[in-house]
Design a protein around this nucleic acid. Structure first.
Lengths: 200, 200
DNA sequence: GTCTATAAGGTGATAGAC
DNA sequence: GTCTATCACCTTATAGAC
């Protein structure tokens, strides 16, 4: 997404903010225009329709973490390097934009029929992780868990605490946001240790 | 929520189905009436407003798993009994109604200010889990992890695979729904084993 | 309880002036 | 590029007949 004019940037910034929080149907073009401080018809001038504006935001959200994962998946690292770096990449991405996971999951949950095309476009190959786990660099760790369950555990442990942020902050950290953030940062060290135990 | 008439039941059933999938803003009263096969004004007759109908559905969704967890939390079981049963309870609840986690998380993410009141109403006490983990029944397991991180890991591993259902099914199981369900059932046995390793 | 008719307002989108 | 005016449509909600 190349953003030419200043107006265009303001539109996308406001659209992201509101779509992330209230979803597509919960956000009107007027809401976005008001937030950006511009006339509503300019949204149509730049993006032609609400659908196209939303699509731009959605693709942007996906693109903010998929390429990182893809690059990581295709590398030739051992478990010791691979898992910690992958976890750090994912958690850092979430720390920067905590609303993205729930936004993406909600959209894909509403429109699961979009999945096949998205996978195609993003160039995701699920068998990479599977082949990697059967590779030589991982053998030394001993017990080989089901690669899909392992992958699912890794993603669950990384992403869920952000998708459930308000609940986690309020229930486990008594509403203390700083304590929540600190706990998320600690997980960058904690999760590799735990996942390694899955292999033993 | 006591459902008196047949019409009332049809309304709630359709409202749940549509709110779960498309959210509050993405579902119109007309959509619900059409799905239930009744006149639209009857929704207002029975629930007065869209807000009140949504609230009924939302509280119902929360109530479908919170009491189970609360009862479990307050019991005096050892790790060996407690964790597996809690996992089974949560996963079984999700298997029965897979859309609830993303529905609830999206609503709370849109309106985090609702959290304090919800916690109060539901009678959730986060310190119960913490005290439990420091209790005698858990000591024998050796290393004591941070109770909050342990709780977060448990919930992540149980809930995320359902919140991310379309992604998981498509990417990890090539769109094979039966394989996905089978994997979720396996996790009832798998997760207790993994979580026990967190204590060693 | 269930319907029709209607109200008042918001929605996305476009035509056309500047 | 940016604005005003306007379009047809959809939204929630209610009044009143039966």
């Amino acid at each position: 997404m190349t953003l030419n004019t200043e107006t265009e940037q303001k539109i996308v910034a406001s659209a992201e903010k509101l779509f992330y929080r209230k979803g597509k149907a919960g956000t009107s073009m007027q809401d976005i225009a008001d937030d950006a401080g511009i006339n509503r018809t300019l949204l149509n001038y730049y993006f032609r329709s609400k659908d196209q504006l939303f699509e731009a935001v959605f693709r942007n959200a996906m693109a903010s973490f998929v390429p990182n994962l893809a690059a990581m998946l295709n590398s030739e690292m051992s478990f010791e390097d691979y898992v910690p770096r992958m976890i750090e990449t994912v958690i850092d991405a979430m720390l920067e934009n905590p609303q993205i996971p729930i936004f993406v999951l909600q959209e894909l949950s509403s429109n699961p029929e979009r999945m096949p095309q998205i996978i195609k476009e993003m160039g995701i190959d699920s068998t990479v992780a599977e082949r990697k786990m059967k590779g030589e660099q991982w053998k030394e760790l001993g017990n080989q868990p089901d690669p899909r369950q392992f992958m699912l555990n890794l993603l669950s442990l990384c992403i869920f605490p952000f998708a459930a942020r308000p609940v986690v902050t309020e229930i486990l950290y008594n509403g203390d946001n700083d304590a929540y953030i600190e706990a998320m940062k600690q997980r960058k060290q904690l999760l590799p240790l735990l996942l390694k135990k899955f292999m033993i």
